[in-house]
């Protein structure tokens, strides 16, 4: 039962107010993409034991999607940030690197 702070409204939301949306920062592949690209977009998901970036929606609150970086093993939350982000903010990445020196980094 996580608590994630919604960056859109600032509520420290109980997991029961949230809806999980899977891996963050996927790149959509539409018509014109190769089978491999589409397969990767549609089906291949990271499942790390450790640092992970996820999509969450504050479904019972402000209704906005946001992104969260957390450790799947310890459930430590490194930070949340708006969904309108192509990749994790640099300062968040630096913070994670500091806390998890062995983290291979985003991507």
């Amino acid at each position: 039962m996580l608590i994630l702070e919604c960056p859109c409204c600032g509520v420290k939301a109980d997991e029961t107010e949230l809806q999980a949306g899977g891996e963050a920062h996927l790149k959509r592949y539409g018509p014109g993409s190769t089978d491999e690209e589409f397969d990767g977009y549609m089906f291949s998901r990271k499942n790390p034991k450790g640092v992970h970036f996820e999509r969450w929606r504050h479904a019972y609150g402000c209704g906005k999607w946001f992104l969260a970086a957390r450790c799947t093993a310890t459930l430590e939350v490194f930070g949340t940030y708006p969904a309108q982000t192509k990749e994790p903010p640099a300062d968040l990445q630096a913070k994670i690197k500091q806390k998890r020196p062995n983290w291979e980094g985003y991507k």
């Binding site: 809806q19 949306g21 959509r28 929606r57 479904a59 209704g63 906005k64 999607w65 969904a83 309108q84």
Partner: peptide
């Protein structure tokens, strides 16, 4: 409705 908002907020913002 959630599906629409998902695309609007996360892909075509």
């Amino acid at each position: 409705h959630g599906w629409m908002e998902d695309w609007l907020q996360c892909e075509w913002w």
